[in-house]
């Protein structure tokens, strides 16, 4: 039962990303060609809303369901892993027109071939895991 809330958040997330067209391959293409404001508007208003939520929750001492402070884990400092990893992910994002969330959501919309992309993404994750200690971070 305790997982139902997570299932519902996921359902909501899936619906929002389809209805916003953020799962559209074409919208991602358009974004990287600077031919539409749509995706920038989505990401921009999401980040602005997110900043407001976190600032207000900090000032208002909003607590989580368990009574703890609302907490976002800190990313380790660094540069190389973020820029190189980011570029590699960006290449895949623009090629498939989907990042990990939309990959799962598009599967739900009936794009069965996304299973191949998801399996390949697991393989990519596996390659990273195996090479991790040899990569600059």
């Amino acid at each position: 039962m305790k997982f139902i809330k997570f299932l519902l958040v996921g359902v909501f997330f899936g619906i929002v990303l389809v209805k916003s067209e953020a799962v559209s391959w074409y919208r991602i293409y358009e974004m990287f060609r600077f031919q539409s404001f749509h995706m920038y508007g989505i990401i921009g208003t999401a980040v602005i809303s997110g900043i407001l939520f976190l600032q207000i929750s900090k000032k208002g001492k909003l607590k989580s369901i368990k009574g703890a402070d609302i907490y976002v884990p800190k990313k380790e400092n660094g540069f190389t892993r973020y820029i190189i990893g980011g570029i590699i992910f960006g290449l895949g994002w623009a090629l498939l027109g989907a990042c990990p969330g939309p990959m799962y959501i598009l599967l739900g919309t009936g794009i069965w071939t996304m299973l191949i992309a998801i399996a390949a993404a697991m393989l990519g994750t596996l390659i990273y895991g195996v090479l991790k200690t040899k990569l600059p971070h």
Binding site: I43, Y82, G85, G92, W93
Partner: peptide, 25 residues
């Protein structure tokens, strides 16, 4: 295209420690 795109996404997100949801949002 599906395989290379998937591998780039899986490798890149883990190397960078996150994707659009974890980093951008």
């Amino acid at each position: 295209i599906l395989i290379i795109g998937g591998i780039l996404i899986g490798f890149g997100t883990r190397y960078a420690g996150g994707c659009t949801s974890g980093h951008a949002i």
